[in-house]
Write a protein that binds this DNA or RNA. Structure first.
Lengths: 329, 329
DNA sequence: TTGTAAGCGTTATCAC
DNA sequence: GTGATAACGCTTACAA
């Protein structure tokens, strides 16, 4: 309790103001009360530096005004951006944020969830990856980028549309043969729709394409092997590449250039996420930008039923394309 | 309360197990109890999915097992790294983290602090910038990078030593005339010792130097003007530059190169913080690396007096130099 | 309108 | 060693 023993309580404020406990409570909670009483209470509260004890209040009201955010870590800029935006969105509503780091670990995720339950949070926003995560059906739970089932709302960007957009952008910029690369934590997940959208657009436009869809545990080697096989003497047999993350795109741009091929002149590359350089604020590569603030805002408002008339199981928010130097202008 | 009405309480567990409330409490808190009773209670708790209500417990014990972290935002990699490390360090001790974003705003910082107080956290770790922040002297309070007064412990890296190290590194790499640049939120703060350390080392080695110490509201223009004045036809009249952050260093490297000067051949540049590229993990520039995990760990343990025999008002943790391509190898 | 008192889920102090 | 019972600080009927 902040190490402070002399933390003033409502009772003390009541005594100081010469009113009853209930009156103090009413003043604190903005419930109509005689003007003279209100003044006395406010004066006393200020004098004693009174601050409501959220825990005691929560015990009574069964609401904590706190939600938990569970995410893999705070080192990746995307997670940092999400956490930041969620905190801001919650704050605007008078809610606090309890942050838990799962380390992308199944047990860690379960542990974070248990912690949130013990804290009796009013809701949980999670970016989890364990498909077998045991979550109390009564829990006010929203996921980001991870669809569980119809009972759990999932807020995500329009991954399918993003994949489509990437393919169409590359095609529009003159690409004749495309390539898709993916490295991810799990084989199935909301972001996997990126490839589906990409493939559909390619087919629609009659553009040939190749894909390399790998688990991150396989590392970069298979991608590099692909480049070795498909870039001969600085000539690539594809001229457009879409990667499922900016991170992979950045690595591939480096690898392509290292093999004597120019980006974007010979091969154009588009990533996904819309990560910006922390110093300059510029995009690392041409990319499909996730609407981070909107995702956070939507996730938060999904927790409060009064905000949205109907709960949608899956919400796909619009993405946008940003030029970042790895496509032709 | 997680929207769950049927959350089992200790009383229900007691009824289920056919024991008294006190006995359940003892089992939950690992207080010796008859083996048979313990079994019955554990069985009942498991069956009902009982989970202790932290708020009710806190109301009794006056401890919340939660600490608040206040920082400007979670978008800058340094803040993200600090938040991540603090969360991990707290978790190891069984504590939860309440995160508040201040937006580097005086009022925002005060608001975050009030929120933490209302939540009755057991302590606060803050990266605040308002020197007039009103903080309850009773509050278990630790700052990072911001010295208040002897009563408030401040955990920081060895900024003075880092400045020294940067100067000596540049001198050791052959620089004959140095330059220091700073752009920051406030004129005074723990990180300002970087320049002091830098200057001392320069004087010690008899190396001439120049400094440009500005408030961030002035933007980059004065720095660029300096470069314009000191780089003529691709020749700079200084050959070593130390910037107080990696961010500034990165910008300056770009600006120096844009003026026809080579980095690191003509001018060597060292930044401060040790930020790494999120994709490749490599440093953006040669830099003085902050011991992020150690800072977080130290800040956390400063909150728990039993961990450290004596509270030190200012703790300066060792930094290290990392090569990042903007100095000679 | 204002005061009084019950009770939220837990821990801790007692008798038993 | 176990079971009642009184707090903890607050909200909320309900009584005055």
């Amino acid at each position: 309790m902040s190490g402070k023993q002399g933390n003033p309580t409502m009772k003390e404020v009541a005594a100081e103001a010469g009113v009853s406990l209930g009156t103090v409570s009413k003043v604190i909670n903005n419930i109509p009360v005689g003007e003279e009483y209100r003044k006395r209470v406010e004066e006393a509260a200020r004098k004693l530096g009174y601050q409501v004890n959220n825990y005691a209040r929560s015990l009574r009201t069964n609401r904590t005004n706190t939600i938990a955010l569970i995410l893999p870590n705070l080192n990746h800029p995307y997670f940092g951006a999400i956490a930041n935006a969620v905190a801001v969105a919650l704050n605007r509503r008078g809610y606090s944020m309890l942050t838990s780091i799962s380390n992308s670990d199944d047990q860690g995720e379960q542990r974070c969830l248990a912690l949130a339950m013990a804290h009796k949070v009013d809701g949980v926003i999670a970016m989890t990856y364990n498909p077998r995560l045991e979550v109390d059906p009564q829990l006010n739970f929203v996921t980001i980028d991870r669809f569980f089932n119809a009972g759990v709302p999932c807020v995500s960007c329009d991954n399918f549309g993003g994949g489509q957009m990437a393919a169409e952008k590359l095609i529009g910029l003159g690409c004749k043969r495309l390539m898709f690369m993916r490295s991810g934590t799990h084989i199935y997940g909301e972001p996997d729709k990126r490839i589906a959208g990409f493939e559909m657009a390619c087919k629609q436009h009659g553009i040939p394409y190749d894909t390399l869809n790998l688990h991150e545990s396989e590392g970069l080697a298979p991608f590099l092997a692909y480049l070795d096989a498909h870039i001969k003497e600085g000539k690539a047999d594809f001229d457009g590449l879409f990667c499922n993350t900016d991170k992979l795109a950045i690595m591939m741009v480096g690898a392509i250039r290292a093999r004597g091929c120019r980006v974007p002149e010979d091969v154009q590359v588009i990533g996904f996420d819309g990560i910006r350089d922390f110093a300059t604020g510029s995009y690392y590569c041409s990319t499909i930008v996730q609407p981070v603030e909107l995702i956070a805002e939507t996730a938060v408002s999904s927790l409060f039923p009064q905000d949205s008339s109907e709960i949608k199981p899956l919400i796909a928010l619009p993405v946008s394309y940003a030029f970042g130097g790895t496509t032709k202008a």
